[in-house]
C-alpha cells in the first residue's frame, strides 16, 4: 500500500460525572503543537460546566469517601495499571503536544504511573499516620481520625501536562475527596486522555472531573462556589492567586498554595494533608486504670 492512511482525529471533550460532554456553551479553542501546527479543537468550559462538575463531584463524594480505605487504594492502583497500558499514547501526546523528546516523555509517563501507585499506598495509612488515640486526662476514650474535606477545586500546573496533573489529582482523591480540576490550558490533551484512563479504571464517575478552557474565566466561579470545600491553587498564576484566595474566604474554603513545583521530586505529604479534616471522638470508658477497679 503506497497510499498513506488518514488517521481518525479525536474530538476532545470535557470529563464530568464519568461522561464526556461537550461544553454546554458549544465553545471550543484550538490547541497547537510546539511548531504552531494545529492539533485539536478542545472544549472551552463555561461557568455552567464548572457548576455541573461541582454537582457531579458532590454527588460522588459520599460514596467515594465511604468506601473502605483498602478498596480506595485498589481503585487508585487500578488507575496506574490502566495508565501503564496506554504508555505509548501518552508518550506520543507529550512529544507532539509539548515537544518533549521521547526519552523525557517516557520518563514523565513512568513517573506519573509510579506517582499514582505511591498515593494508592497511602489510602489505608492516613489514619495510622495522622490519627491518634488521645491519652486525655479523664475516664474517656478519645480518638482522632482524618477524614476527607469534600469537593476540591484544583488548577493543574500549566507547565507539566501529565505528571503535574497526576501529582495534583492523586493525593486529593486518595484520601476520599472528589475533585474538579482545570487542565493546563495550553496542554490539555494529556488531561483528556487521562480522563479516558480514569473512565476505564474502576473509579466511580464524578470522583475526578476534568475541565478544559481558560482558568481565568472558570476558576473564580469555583473559588466562590458554595459547594466547593477546598481549593488547590497549584496552577494559579500570580495574577489570579490573591483573588481566588479572597473568594475562597466567602465559605471558608481550605486553600492549598504549593511552595514548590518540581514534579520529579518525591511528592511528600503536604498535598495529602491539605485536604484532610480531623475528627475527634469522645466516649466514657467507665474505668480509668488498666487494672480496672469497678464502674464498667
Amino acid at each position: 500500500m503506497s497510499q498513506q492512511r488518514l488517521p481518525v482525529a479525536k474530538t476532545y471533550k470535557l470529563f464530568v460525572g464519568g461522561a464526556f460532554p461537550r461544553s454546554e456553551s458549544g465553545r471550543t479553542y484550538p490547541v497547537r503543537g510546539p511548531g504552531g501546527e494545529f492539533l485539536a479543537n478542545v472544549a472551552r468550559a463555561s461557568r455552567k460546566d464548572a457548576r455541573d462538575a461541582v454537582v457531579a463531584a458532590r454527588k460522588a463524594f459520599r460514596g467515594w469517601a465511604g468506601t473502605t480505605a483498602y478498596n480506595r487504594g485498589q481503585v487508585v492502583y487500578r488507575i496506574a495499571e490502566m495508565l501503564e497500558g496506554r504508555r505509548a499514547q501518552f508518550v506520543d501526546l507529550l512529544v507532539t503536544g509539548d515537544g518533549a523528546d521521547p526519552a523525557a516523555a517516557g520518563a514523565a509517563v513512568d513517573a506519573a504511573v509510579d506517582r499514582i501507585v505511591h498515593f494508592a499506598g497511602w489510602t489505608d495509612k492516613l489514619a495510622a499516620v495522622w490519627g491518634s488515640a488521645n491519652p486525655v486526662a479523664g475516664p474517656y476514650f478519645s480518638f482522632s481520625v482524618p477524614e476527607p474535606t469534600g469537593v476540591v477545586a484544583a488548577l493543574a500546573p500549566p507547565d507539566d501536562a501529565l505528571l503535574g496533573l497526576v501529582s495534583v489529582v492523586a493525593p486529593i482523591i486518595a484520601s476520599g475527596n472528589t475533585v474538579v480540576v482545570l487542565a493546563a490550558p495550553d496542554h490539555p490533551l494529556p488531561a483528556i486522555a487521562l480522563a479516558e484512563v480514569l473512565a476505564t479504571s474502576d473509579l466511580p464517575g464524578g470522583v475526578v472531573n476534568i475541565l478544559t478552557g481558560d482558568p481565568a474565566e472558570i476558576a473564580p466561579h469555583l473559588a466562590a462556589h458554595g459547594d466547593v470545600d477546598a481549593l488547590d491553587l497549584t496552577g494559579a498564576g500570580a495574577e489570579l492567586r490573591a483573588d481566588l484566595e479572597r473568594a475562597a474566604a466567602g465559605t471558608v474554603k481550605r486553600v492549598h498554595v504549593p511552595t514548590g513545583s518540581d514534579w520529579t521530586a518525591p511528592p511528600g505529604t503536604a498535598r495529602l494533608r491539605a485536604f484532610l479534616e480531623v475528627k475527634t471522638v469522645w466516649h466514657p470508658t467507665g474505668a480509668v486504670s488498666l487494672t480496672g477497679g469497678g464502674g464498667y
Binding site: 466516649h283 470508658t285 467507665g286
Partner: peptide, 12 residues
Amino acid sequence: EKGSRILGMASA
C-alpha cells in the same frame, strides 16, 4: 450494648 462497659473491659 453499653459503650462504656466495652471500653472499660477493653482496658482491663
